[in-house]
Amino acid sequence: MLILTRKEGEKITIGDDIVLTILEVKGRKVRVGIDAPPDTVILREELYQRIQEENRRAAASDVEDMERAIDLWSSIGPPQEKTEHAD
């Protein structure tokens, strides 16, 4: 891990396209601004971990699981559909 110390207003560049700005330091919290290309995924790390974990759980689905989902969905009843009544 590269460790740097910055003050409010100072910046860090990552690669050619990403700039991190320390906007505000207040008590135990730091406000960070990030400039990056729009297709760069930037997330609070714990959220990324949760999505990754849920993706892994979802990837474990087998045919039996699919059948279970279909059965459960049928038991809920059909979604409300717009019905057009002939006049």
Binding site: L47, I51, E54, N55, R57, S61, R68, A69
Partner: peptide, 18 residues
């Protein structure tokens, strides 16, 4: 949306955040 089926609890959940 990706669907997770929990075999033990029988819950079927959908990831609406990702």
């Amino acid at each position: 949306a990706l669907v997770t089926i929990d075999r033990h609890e029988g819950r079927v959940t959908v990831n609406l955040v990702g």
